[in-house]
Lab assay of single mutants.
Amino acid sequence: HNLTITQGKLFFHYNPKLCLSEIHKMEEVSGTKGRQERNDIALKTNGDQASCENELLKFSYIRTSFDKILLRWEPYWPPDFRDLLGFMLFYKEAPYQNVTEFDGQDACGSNSWTVVDIDPPLRSNDPKSQNHPGWLMRGLKPWTQYAIFVKTLVTFSDERRTYGAKSDIIYVQTDATNPSVPLDPISVSNSSSQIILKWKPPSDPNGNITHYLVFWERQAEDSELFELDYCLKGLKLPSRTWSPPFESEDSQKHNQSEYEDSAGECCSCPKTDSQILKELEESSFRKTFEDYLHNVVFVPRKTSSGTGAEDPRPSRKRRSLGDVGNVTVAVPTVAAFPNTSSTSVPTSPEEHRPFEKVVNKESLVISGLRHFTGYRIELQACNQDTPEERCSVAAYVSARTMPEAKADDIVGPVTHEIFENNVVHLMWQEPKEPNGLIVLYEVSYRRYGDEELHLCVSRKHFALERGCRLRGLSPGNYSVRIRATSLAGNGSWTEPTYFYVTDYLDVPSNIA
């Protein structure tokens, strides 16, 4: 807008934040220059609390790290170098490059900038070799853009010569660093050979998330399962459950009422301010606690030095998902009996873990797994792929695949051998790939016309006998059925096997 004052003059007093240069501009645009008398524009009460600059400061050096910015700028000295009290560095987070010096300023003089007072450097006698002032900004957020400017702080001049310097606002972004852990990993099994893994992005990506790394490792069953005799009275049979499938998407929606109208769909109840505040506090606490764990609990591995020492970490090797089922080394339970199943799973520490690289999504279907087997899954978020990966501390989750139908069934015939004193040795093959492992066998036998009897055969007993022995049988026709019990439950009964026990007292003698 054009402003013209045809008559009258300007009068400025007691404006401590208004620089004289701005008042002189007002004289020019209003056409009143030359009308004012000496005392109409006070030299001592206008701009006496402001830094009124008329020179431009330029930054000469900028260096960044993930949490620091090192700045240096060209030296500046007023005509009387004693008038320079120091520099004021202003900075704040700036997602967009549209910041002005006066953003967030209120009537009390406060604003949204963080201000650092910096002492002037030592003055050199040689004007050509003056030290460049600077400042190291610490405690910054990774991968965050900051708006920065600097200006001088000078003393009051009796001659009211307006001098000083100020830089333009520059924008500097800190470097990326390792992201925080992925949030809320959930693993479920939808079949006997697959596990579905879902997660949420890290709360602090500290860069642009480029991919996720998912490692999985087959877990050995508890050692007590191999040692305890679950045929003993009072000892509860062990059981394991597989990871249940995901709930429906509708039930997972946030901010939804727990109660549904019987007449149909209901609208979600909005969260109160107290609920939102509580969630923010919980989120802040979780982030602080995660940072504490990362800094205190997890110790970084030592990389190899120039002395030739090897990095103890196993090298990563990509495998196809079809090879995942046989990740671990199978060892027989008892070496003397080769027909026992290889369900003991000690994992070799030198073995390469299978892994998958996930790009542009937060889910993965891990296939080719062994049925009813526990897996430990390790999830890392990465925001750099080359020249070397920059990934987060791992988040861990466990899951067990679903049982395989008929995996616990005894394959092959049940054979028998009759000894003296009416002892019958029953023999059968253990299931080759049971659900988890076989903890015991149930032997059901009966003599024709009598009630059915049951015998429990422990895992250890089966390994020693290759089956079991029935003792003290009365003469007669017998039928026997056997079924295995694994961590997933009972298998199917075998087809009945028949044998006849004679009275050993009636056996004919070869003595003449």
Rank of each mutant, 00 (worst) to 15 (best):
Q380L: 12
F337V: 10
G467M: 04
S223R: 08
S315W: 12
N435A: 02
C269A: 08
V331I: 15
G325E: 06
V296C: 15
L473H: 01
F462E: 02
Y498Q: 07
H461M: 12
L470D: 01
E452V: 06
A330L: 02
S243G: 08
S223N: 12
V324T: 05
G207D: 03
A263H: 06
G308W: 05
Y230W: 13
Y498M: 11
R459Y: 08
R471Y: 15
C269K: 03
T347Y: 11
N326F: 09
W493S: 03
A309K: 13
S239T: 14
V345N: 07
L369D: 01
P244V: 09
N255L: 03
S392T: 02
Y478Q: 02
Q275N: 07
A335T: 12
T303G: 09
P312V: 14
L426D: 00
V297S: 08
S342P: 06
D503K: 12
F289A: 05
D385Y: 08
H211W: 11
G234C: 15
A484M: 07
S367D: 06
Q219H: 07
H461R: 10
L437F: 03
N421H: 07
I209R: 14
A488Y: 15
V507T: 13
T328C: 06
L379Y: 04
S315A: 07
N208T: 07
Y445D: 00
P434S: 10
Y212P: 00
A399Y: 07
F289C: 03
L213A: 14
L487E: 03
I438G: 01
H454T: 09
E281A: 12
S367C: 12
K253V: 01
L453M: 09
P431S: 03
R400N: 05
K287E: 15
T288P: 09
E350L: 10
V297K: 13
S239A: 14
L293R: 14
R459S: 10
Y441T: 02
G374T: 12
W216V: 12
G412L: 10
K287N: 12
P238E: 05
L369Q: 03
C269V: 08
H294G: 05
I418Y: 06
H211P: 01
L213V: 09
S341T: 09
R370S: 14
V501T: 04
R469K: 03
P205D: 15
T373P: 00
G472D: 12
H461F: 13
R353G: 15
H425Q: 08
E388W: 06
C382I: 01
Y498S: 10
E247M: 10
S486W: 00
N360R: 13
L225Y: 04
E258D: 11
E433Q: 07
N490L: 07
T401R: 00
Y375V: 10
I418D: 01
K357W: 02
G436P: 04
V443P: 01
V424M: 05
V324P: 11
V331Q: 13
H254S: 15
E452Q: 09
K432E: 13
G368K: 05
S305R: 11
E356N: 13
K236F: 06
R376P: 01
D273R: 14
A405S: 10
Y441W: 00
E433Y: 09
G374M: 06
G449I: 08
R471H: 07
S341V: 13
D450V: 09
P338D: 05
L277S: 02
V327T: 08
D229I: 10
